[in-house]
Design a binder for these strands. Structure first.
Lengths: 238, 238
DNA sequence: AAGTGGTCTAGACCACAAC
DNA sequence: TTGTGGTCTAGACCACTTT
């Protein structure tokens, strides 16, 4: 039961109650939390109150709701807190753009020149995954993802149409040592104009990222995103 | 009025309706939108539906609600969409940590050596603002913010206890050209252990950022954040 | 005092997933 | 079929800001 005479909003108390449940260890990651109905009965509050609390916890990444199934404790890798800094899916979702991914290329490449050779030795074999992000039938971003063999083996079985960053942060047990992001605003090239349906004056934002883990000297991951500047500014324009 | 027979949720339709109001130009930035009661009457829907729509739009940064006053169209600078990438306040809020800032230093410094000299010429005068981020009486981050005279003059009158990144992105009319972020996980130094009340084994995350605008060759802004790794992983631990 | 958004309840029906 | 979360309404009272 909950002390309703407190001046703090009820839904905050409900939130704290659920956090305590999780911290107590009684509900480990992936376990199912009490249902909304159970929480209502246990705490003696209305459903809207329970749902406000759950919805905030979901937004904050503490729990995951599955329609028709139940509410579960989110799995958090050691590096989970980095997600906002490195997941494009995360960012796009927070600004109101739900996107889906489609894998359009999946192959092995040998580092020889260009940007890859700037931090990887020539001759190294890495895996390349090319994806397009789509929202409402429009392509909104082009993504090129490169990983070493070592990291690739850790991603075995992962659904590549999901957020790779999320998979990487929750499944990989290595420790992040460093990552370098560079973000540049520039003119699009021909291919980008066609793929992203850009208008003449539009610019694109290019994000590149190198990721390092404690366990290795060499970077294990390189990512290159290209997204129209307009979309970051006005996501509701599509 | 709204077509309730549609299969899309009502609150999405309400959301789209409000977005159209804004896009039409009838409600420019900072103007007051119809009140919740007016929206209920105009669209013939319940208040919870209106509030769900408004609450999502607020989370996405499209509108701002002011208790006891009304709902307003958010002001978005040209670079608004970069906010998730560069605002620590934004990130902390999204993972459930509301923090306040206190300015503990505000002075002018001359670049001579160290990290500042890596991209700024020796002898350059820049402004330095040191802030501590606090949540629930604990200091959770140390921030050192450096700007050139040019950029500093643009921030005139800004409330330094607010998010500087937000002010910078919504008030400055320059165009972002590039920013470089580096994020490193490392052992804390003595001062950090004391200020952040770190336990022995705790590590810290250090974020550094250089920011460039189209209008200048030189970087205009350098930021250094230090935050305990624990807090990014488990914000509810405080 | 009036008007705004903030919190909360009770109850209804729908959509989805699993048995 | 059952149980879960998703959407929605009507109505109440509270807290904050402005007049």
């Amino acid at each position: 039961m909950i002390d309703k005479s407190s001046s703090t909003p009820l839904y905050i108390l409900v939130k704290d109650y659920i956090i305590k449940l999780i911290l107590s260890g009684e509900y480990p990651p992936n376990s199912q939390l009490p249902t909304e109905y159970e929480l209502m009965k246990t705490l003696g509050v209305g459903r809207a109150t329970v749902r406000t609390a759950l919805s905030q916890l979901e937004n904050e990444g503490t729990i995951v709701k599955k329609h028709g199934v139940g509410t579960f404790v989110a799995e958090r890798g050691k590096a989970f807190g980095f997600e906002p800094f490195i997941s494009l899916s995360f960012t796009l979702e927070k600004i109101g753009l739900k996107s889906t991914n489609s894998v359009v290329g999946h192959n092995k490449v040998t580092v020889s020149d260009g940007i890859l050779a700037s931090r990887w030795e020539s001759g190294l074999e890495v895996f390349h995954i090319k994806r397009l992000r789509q929202a409402e039938a429009y392509t909104i971003a082009i993504e090129d993802f490169y990983v070493t063999k070592e990291l690739y083996s850790k991603l075995e079985g992962a659904d590549m149409s999901e957020s790779i960053a999320h998979t990487l942060l929750s499944k990989v047990d290595w420790s992040i040592k460093e990552f370098d992001n560079k973000i540049i605003v520039r003119e699009p090239n021909e291919e980008e104009i066609k793929t992203l349906f850009l208008r003449d004056e539009s610019k694109v934002v290019e994000l590149t990222r190198w990721m390092y883990f404690e366990e290795f000297e060499e970077p294990q991951n390189f990512v290159n995103f290209v997204i129209p500047l307009d979309i970051l500014e006005f996501p509701f324009l599509r």
